[in-house]
Deep mutational scan, measured.
Amino acid sequence: GAPPLPPYSAGGREVTMKKGDILTLLNSTNKDWWKVEVNDRQGFVPAAYVKKLDSGTGKELVLALYDYQEK
């Protein structure tokens, strides 16, 4: 199953993602919540729920390892 959710501390809205989604990583300075862009929406997802990909394009991409439903 998915890892436990860290307390929400990102101070911005969250976004929903599905397992297998490829998201653009915008900011990973917060260790628990990373800012991503998905379907032209920006928001935060739990860092433990995604994995960085080596895209080779200069853009940082992450793979959704679990479904996440915004609150």
Rank of each mutant, 00 (worst) to 15 (best):
D32V: 06
F44D: 02
G56S: 13
D32W: 13
L53Y: 14
T57D: 14
T57W: 12
P3H: 05
M17L: 07
N39Q: 11
R13C: 10
V36Q: 00
K31Y: 09
G11K: 04
K71P: 12
D21I: 03
Q69G: 13
D32H: 13
T16N: 12
V38P: 00
L23T: 00
K19Q: 09
T57G: 15
K71Q: 15
G43V: 06
V62D: 00
V62Y: 08
L53M: 07
Y8N: 10
Y8H: 15
W34S: 01
P4T: 12
Y66P: 00
E60I: 15
L61T: 10
K59H: 12
T57C: 06
P4N: 09
Q69Y: 15
G11V: 11
G56L: 13
K51P: 01
I22K: 04
G56Q: 11
T16G: 15
L65T: 04
I22M: 06
K18S: 09
N30W: 07
G11E: 12
V50K: 00
N39Y: 13
S28I: 06
V50H: 00
G12E: 05
W33D: 00
N39R: 10
G56E: 13
S9P: 14
T24P: 10
V62A: 10
Y66G: 02
L61A: 08
K52P: 12
A10R: 04
P7E: 15
D21A: 06
N27W: 06
N27P: 02
N27V: 09
L26N: 03
W34L: 04
G12A: 06
D21V: 04
E37N: 06
G1R: 05
K31W: 06
G58L: 12
Y49R: 03
N39P: 06
P6V: 03
E70C: 05
T24R: 12
G11Q: 10
A10D: 06
T16P: 15
R41D: 10
G12D: 07
V45S: 00
K51T: 14
P7G: 08
G20V: 00
P46N: 01
D21Y: 04
E14T: 15
Q69H: 09
L5Q: 08
T24M: 12
V45K: 01
G20K: 01
L5V: 10
A10S: 14
T29P: 02
L65K: 04
G20I: 00
G11A: 15
A64M: 03
A48Q: 13
I22C: 04
N39E: 14
V62H: 02
P46G: 02
L25C: 05
S55Y: 11
L53P: 01
D40I: 04
L63S: 04
P4Y: 06
L26M: 07
D21F: 04
A64I: 02
P46Y: 01
R41A: 10
L65I: 09
Y8D: 09
F44Y: 15
G56R: 03
M17K: 00
A64Q: 00
A48G: 07
L65E: 04
L26E: 02
S9K: 05
T57S: 14
V45A: 03
G12T: 07
G20N: 06
Y8Q: 14
R13L: 15
P7Q: 14
K59T: 13
S9I: 11
G20T: 02
Q42Y: 09
N27H: 06
L61P: 02
T16M: 07
P4H: 08
G58S: 12
T29D: 15
P7S: 14
P3G: 06
G56P: 15
D21P: 00
K51H: 11
K19G: 04
L63D: 01
K52I: 11
Y49Q: 02
V62R: 00
E70V: 12
L53H: 07
A48T: 10
A47C: 04
E37A: 11
P3L: 06
K59C: 08
K51M: 15
T29H: 11
L23S: 02
E60M: 13
V36A: 02
E14A: 12
W33V: 01
G20Q: 03
D40N: 11
E37P: 00
W34Q: 01
E37F: 05
G58D: 12
D32E: 12
L26T: 04
P4F: 06
D54K: 07
D54W: 12
T29C: 09
E60G: 08
Y68W: 08
V15K: 02
S55Q: 09
D21C: 04
L26I: 13
R41S: 11
I22E: 03
P3F: 06
W33F: 04
G1W: 10
P6A: 02
N30F: 05
E60V: 15
P7A: 12
V50S: 01
L23Y: 10
K52R: 14
K31G: 09
T16Y: 11
K31H: 12
T57M: 15
Q69K: 09
M17G: 00
T57Y: 12
Y66R: 05
R13T: 11
S9M: 07
Y49L: 06
V36H: 00
A2D: 08
L5M: 10
N27A: 11
Q42E: 12
G58A: 10
R13H: 15
V36R: 00
K59R: 14
S28R: 07
Q69W: 11
A64Y: 01
S9E: 10
T16A: 13
V50P: 01
D67H: 04
Y8K: 05
G43H: 03
E60T: 15
G12M: 11
Y8S: 15
K52D: 04
Y49N: 02
G1S: 15
G12I: 08
N39V: 11
P46T: 02
V36E: 01
G12F: 10
A47V: 04
Y66V: 04
G58H: 05
L61C: 05
P7H: 13
D54I: 11
K19W: 03
K18N: 08
A10I: 13
R13Q: 15
D40M: 08
D32I: 08
W34Y: 07
P4A: 11
K31F: 08
P4E: 11
E14I: 15
D67A: 04
T16Q: 08
E70G: 14
V36F: 00
A2N: 11
K31T: 10
V50N: 00
L63C: 07
Y68Q: 01
V15F: 13
A64G: 04
V50Q: 00
E14H: 14
F44N: 04
V15R: 02
K59Q: 12
V62C: 08
L61M: 12
V38C: 07
K18R: 09
Q69A: 15
Q42K: 12
I22L: 09
G1N: 14
G11T: 08
A10W: 06
G56T: 14
I22R: 04
L65M: 10
T24I: 13
G58V: 10
L25N: 01
E70S: 12
L53T: 05
K59V: 15
K18C: 07
Y8W: 09
P3N: 05
F44S: 03
V15N: 04
K51Q: 14
A64S: 05
Y49A: 05
A48N: 15
N39H: 10
V15Y: 05
Q69T: 15
G58Q: 09
E60S: 11
S55L: 10
Q69S: 14
G1E: 15
K35F: 15
I22T: 05
E60F: 11
P3V: 07
E70W: 07
V15G: 03
P6G: 03
P6M: 02
L25S: 01
P46Q: 01
V45E: 00
Y68N: 01
R13M: 14
W33G: 00
Q42C: 07
T24W: 12
D32N: 09
R41C: 06
A48Y: 05
V38I: 15
D54V: 15
E70L: 06
